[in-house]
Design a protein around this nucleic acid. Structure first.
Lengths: 217, 217
DNA sequence: GCTATCGGATAGTTACACTATCCACATGAA
DNA sequence: TTCATGTGGATAGTGTAACTATCCGATAGC
């Protein structure tokens, strides 16, 4: 297929596809003449993956590039995990994170097999530090319950990866799960917040959501 | 205190503070003369909150403005919850979300008291749609386990809010918890992923993390 | 032959979050 | 009392990121 078709089938503007080619997010098509190229179904798939990483996962083009490079390489799964994690985490200067916040994270994840420079550990500590600065660091087990839920999610993620037979599928699941999993959980969390909040503050409400019926707010 | 002191004590540049004043994120100081003003400890607190929302929570200035406006108003808690949720969710055109993805979200959250236009519901459906397009939508209960964990987190969030006595404190907890909670969970999730992954693929590893000891990667 | 489309290169646009400069006036130590 | 330093407010400039538009000479297919 030529670029015009790739553009219509993927709903991405031609100029944008050219931009992705330039940035090496999308591999070049097979040249059929000095100024013609042929694109395949693989390009359509890759384009969808790119849009997922950028639009839904919120990655920058540079981060998506790193993640896709790892995916294309023959690296072991653990390495790909690391790259995907680094991509979704902003780079935090370890020196900028107060030791007290790191200590809090470490106490909450006591017994976990985690290297000290895990990007999530630093990110969590930065949040703790910010909560502390604003005076909203809970002493009632809020953070501990977050850690317990994070453990459940990590088990689900690893089970999902284990269930995939081929290495390439595993690798893509690692990337997609890591990047889009955050967004999925955030959405479900907000949904659950409304539910729990309705249960507690409007008990006995008949506002049950029935998706099969047309409703208005 | 004057602006120079506000700047040093909060580690925010004077020009940036002026920018926040201009954008009405930070209330003006009390004028003591035509071109002098006095700032208080409240301004320091607010500045820390702003930096938390922008840097750690990843809000834009416009979103932070909306959230802070809600916080300053006398709105009921439920409304503030809604504003905070809308701020962390990108605005999704409901028409752009495939019905099949929405149906999947609704089936996973079956029995939950949620209005159809909950921003989290749309956001979750968008992720599902993206997973579907890439061909990575799990049929093995991955999404269901995310929903179960989200419910646990929502319970923790509401317990936390319930534990705060005053209305103003509750409101700030709602905002801070909603915005920074996502970031905290993401960080802990990545930490848990490394832990579970190490448990499964390097069983018996002696690489236990002991935060009290100096370690190198 | 002729016109639409192609790839590739280059330059322009938009949005955002600051950041810098100017100005007339105020403050406070020398 | 002087005067360097600091002030609020207005305005304009900067840097980055992600596109988007235009131009070009070269096919493609009728």
């Amino acid at each position: 297929m030529k670029m015009a078709e790739l553009s219509t089938v993927s709903a991405v503007a031609v100029a944008t596809i050219k931009f992705y080619l330039r940035e090496r997010l999308l591999p070049a098509g097979e040249r059929t003449s000095p100024n013609q190229a042929d694109y395949t179904e693989q390009h359509v798939r890759r384009l969808r993956l790119i849009r997922g990483l950028l639009d839904v996962g919120g990655l920058s083009v540079a981060e998506a590039h790193r993640v896709l490079d790892a995916l294309d390489s023959e690296q072991p799964l653990q390495q790909i995990f690391g790259v995907a994690q680094a991509a979704v985490s902003e780079h935090i200067d370890p020196a900028s994170v107060p030791a007290s916040a790191l200590a809090r994270v470490d106490s909450v994840t006591d017994g976990w097999l985690v290297s000290p420079d895990n990007p999530g550990r630093l990110a969590a500590a930065q949040v703790i530090a910010s909560l502390e600065a604003i005076g909203h660091l809970s002493a009632r087990g809020w953070v501990e319950r977050y850690a317990a839920a994070a453990l459940l999610i990590a088990e689900a993620d690893l089970d999902e990866i284990d269930a995939i037979p081929d290495r390439e599928g595993k690798a893509e699941t690692v990337v997609v799960g890591t990047v889009l999993g955050d967004a999925l959980f955030s959405g479900l969390r907000r949904t659950a917040q409304e539910h729990v909040s309705a249960l507690r503050y409007q008990p006995g409400s008949a506002a049950h959501h029935h998706p099969s019926l047309a409703e208005s707010p």
